[in-house]
Simulated scan of single mutants.
Amino acid sequence: MDISPWPPLLVVDAEGNGATPPDLVEVAALPVRDGRPDTSTAGAWLINPPRPDTPFVARVHGLTSEILADSPTWQELADQVHSVLGNAWICGHNVHVDYRALKAHLPKWEPAGVIDTLRLARATYKGLPSYGLDTLINHIRPDLSAAPAHRHRATYDSYATAQILIAMADQYETWDQLIAVAVPPGMPGAPEPEKDATLW
Rank of each mutant, 00 (worst) to 15 (best):
L77Y: 07
A78Y: 01
Q80N: 05
Q80D: 14
Q80F: 00
V81D: 02
V81G: 04
V81Y: 00
H82W: 10
H82A: 15
S83T: 15
S83Y: 05
V84I: 15
V84R: 13
L85T: 02
L85N: 09
L85Y: 07
G86R: 01
A88C: 13
A88L: 01
W89R: 04
I90C: 06
I90D: 07
I90M: 11
C91I: 02
G92K: 06
H96P: 00
V97M: 10
V97E: 06
D98P: 08
D98R: 08
Y99K: 01
Y99L: 15
A101F: 05
A101E: 08
A101N: 11
A101C: 10
L102R: 06
K103H: 13
A104L: 10
A104I: 00
L106T: 03
W109M: 09
E110H: 12
P111H: 11
P111Q: 08
P111I: 12
P111R: 13
A112V: 05
A112I: 08
V114P: 01
V114E: 04
I115D: 07
T117K: 10
L118S: 07
L118Q: 13
R119V: 13
R119H: 06
L120M: 12
R122Y: 06
R122G: 12
R122Q: 14
R122C: 09
A123L: 00
L128T: 01
L128W: 09
L128R: 11
L128S: 07
L128I: 08
L128Q: 11
P129H: 10
P129E: 10
P129F: 07
G132N: 14
D134F: 03
D134Y: 04
L136W: 04
I137K: 13
I137H: 03
N138P: 00
N138W: 09
